[in-house]
């Protein structure tokens, strides 16, 4: 019994030291070059804006009905009857404008500073794909709220919904993983 307990404690100790090492290596003992620009945080803000959209989107998923006639009615129900629904819905509606503004700001900075050049060409490729996917995300989301008034999308609200909540986020996640992995590999842009 004691042996099992000792083994369990040992394995737990190994796991916690492993986690401690990861945290120390990546956060607490990590050193970065001095004088990083505040504008360098725009990529990070875009990620935060994406997370805000994801969280508010998950809340909206509980009440939104992706039906031809029910979509607008469910949005009205969220806005008027669900506690704080108006706030979540408005954040989800306003957020993309701020997120796209941040992404454009980030890309303009990268472009004019020439940071996309060798060895960071693939960062630009993955980043611009993320930008296009964000625009597609906005487009499909916009059609979900106003689309069923448009005859072209009247019968396709459920398809649009599937694309908006599953297909595009999955691809975005893939490209984000690529983008962050490459940034970790080549490092952030170093000031001269």
């Amino acid at each position: 019994m004691d042996d099992t307990k000792n083994e369990f404690n040992k394995s737990m100790g190994e796991e916690s030291s492993f986690l401690k090492e990861i945290v120390e290596k990546n956060i607490t003992r990590k050193l970065i070059p001095k004088g990083m620009s505040w504008f360098g945080c725009m990529g990070g803000i875009s990620l935060v804006a994406f997370l805000v959209q994801t969280i508010t989107g998950i809340f909206l998923m509980f009440y939104f009905i992706p039906g031809t006639k029910e979509a607008v009615a469910s949005i009205q129900h969220i806005t008027h009857h669900v506690p704080f629904g108006w706030f979540i819905q408005r954040i989800h509606a306003v957020g993309p404008h701020i997120m796209i503004g941040m992404v454009i700001g980030h890309m303009v900075r990268i472009f004019f500073k020439g940071i996309y050049r060798h060895p960071r060409e693939l960062h630009w490729v993955s980043g611009s794909c993320l930008f296009i996917l964000t625009l597609l995300m906005y487009y499909t989301g916009n059609l979900l709220s106003v689309g069923n008034m448009h005859e072209l999308f009247a019968t396709r609200v459920s398809y649009l919904y599937a694309v908006h909540v599953a297909v595009i986020p999955a691809i975005i996640g893939l490209f984000m993983g690529m983008h962050f992995f490459m940034i970790r590999k080549t490092g952030i842009y170093e000031p001269l």
């Binding site: 003992r29 990590k30 050193l31 001095k34 990070g44 804006a49």
Partner: peptide, 24 residues
Amino acid sequence: MLEPFFPNEMFRYIIVSCFLLVVE
């Protein structure tokens, strides 16, 4: 020529994230 990532850079990110939430 170096500075610690934690808390310096983390603090910077927390400030700009709060700024984003305030703007929203």
